[in-house]
Design a protein around this nucleic acid. Structure first.
Lengths: 251, 251
DNA sequence: GCTTGACCTTGACGCTGCGTCAAGATTTAG
DNA sequence: CTAAATCTTGACGCAGCGTCAAGGTCAAGC
């Protein structure tokens, strides 16, 4: 019925120190305290501990965990909020990694530190090296042959359309429009239609596949050069949410 | 000639507190201290400060920075080591993000938590959704049409070869072979040759492009499902290093 | 009953890189 | 000469425990 602090620690795969810490924090008080001062925990405490540890593994902080467990704050909401933070951290790391790589390259003297060239989000020429480096080149190759097959006029037109779209997205995002609302969804529809012009896109029942559109949204958010194209992380988040909602409903 | 602590802080875009901290740590002692106790910094100190701040932005810790600046430790080496740590962190974050997403999905009750399906690194069927989600679907589509065009026998053969290669890589990595050495380079050659079977790969002078191969190496390392295919991060690092070296020399 | 371990307690420092008062001395502008 | 800046040293705070330290408690064997 009752377990000593060590028992529980072993059962849950943690340490007694952690348990004492959680006790001190009021996160997980011992279910009973002997007259000798020993802490004892029952099954319910074990379950709670396991939930705590699980949320910790997901990266939640102790205060956030307390809110979820005690005040019954919506767990999905908490995790979703947390996810935003994680994504932001990931982008920060990606920036750092790129910077370090660039610096190393510069130090090796192989090339002048010219990686500071502006990133033209949809210019396939500039795009090439970066995409190959980061997305594995598969991302580039199919699109490129298609791109090269277009006439300069068509290329210009396509780029103009992409710029237009980006501008509209940034505008909507700035105005804090509802990503699932009418206006954003109309934009998403245009975006998908625009995508549709690219051959080779995976399709289902005559339209770009839902998974593809969702994946694209994630990529816009994950890659900060795409994100920059949509006004930074907040803009890219907006685009992703809108595309995801659109894919859920219409694809 | 001399600048007050505030001056320097403003010039370098930091705070006086930080300067005092660096002084206390011996990282950046004031170039002169007035009889009133005031700290004064000269141009050389400013330059040093700027280097410190630059390295800090790259994520280096103060002790590491001290080593680079004082003991003239090889900066490239320090950054390269640091890069490894950053990459590791990035993978950890990616894992967390996937876990959180999976958990959210499960909580929403839309699908049973079946994301624990094993990842068959080169089975295009299993592969599909994951690649689309993470690499933007472009990565998947071109490869897929090619894959589908193969006969089942050819598919089996190709998969067998990929398995073989992976096994050989893991083996070499485990034995701590030199990634730039003969054996690893031979493997890299086989790997590139194997890749060569995939149509549409960007090429230069008759072989897969160097940038493509390097990018592939990075992807193996960045994506832990690929990494798993090569025996985890250490194995993937080995593969990446070998491929990079190979690309440098032969492509 | 006593000695040994094994296990328990509270208390407190350590880690990272500063942010942020606090109290007091000094310089500078007006 | 005074008020406003600016400077100093000193010290707590943060996140989540790891890690001694010093000292009770308990079950088991002699």
């Amino acid at each position: 019925m009752d377990h000593s602090i060590q028992d529980i620690a072993r059962l849950a795969g943690t340490t007694s120190r952690t348990l004492r810490h959680y006790g001190a924090e009021g996160l997980l008080p011992p279910s009973r305290i002997g007259e000798n001062g020993y802490r004892y925990y029952d099954e319910r405490a074990l379950v709670r501990l396991q939930r705590i540890l699980l949320l910790r593994e997901l990266g939640l902080g102790l205060p956030a965990i307390r809110e979820v467990l005690d005040r019954e704050v919506d767990e999905t909401a908490a995790l979703t909020a947390h996810l935003g933070w994680l994504e932001q951290e990931q982008r920060r790391l990606q920036r750092q990694i790129r910077s370090v790589r660039t610096t190393i390259t510069a130090l090796e003297g192989e090339e002048p530190l010219m990686a500071d060239i502006m990133f033209d989000g949809f210019d396939h020429t500039t795009y090439k090296e970066e995409v190959e480096q980061r997305w594995g080149a598969d991302a580039y190759r199919a699109g490129d042959s298609w791109w090269q097959s277009k006439s300069p006029a068509e290329q210009a037109d396509w780029k103009a359309r992409s710029t237009e779209l980006a501008t509209a997205w940034v505008d909507a995002a700035t105005r804090q429009v509802d990503p699932a609302g009418e206006e954003a969804q109309a934009l998403a529809a245009r975006h998908v239609e625009w995508l549709d012009g690219v051959p080779g896109i995976p399709r289902e029942n005559g339209t770009p596949a839902a998974a593809y559109v969702r994946g694209l949204g994630e990529m816009y958010l994950a890659d900060d050069r795409f994100a920059a194209n949509y006004g930074g992380a907040s803009g890219a988040t907006f685009v992703r949410d809108a595309l995801t909602a659109y894919a859920d409903r219409h694809l």
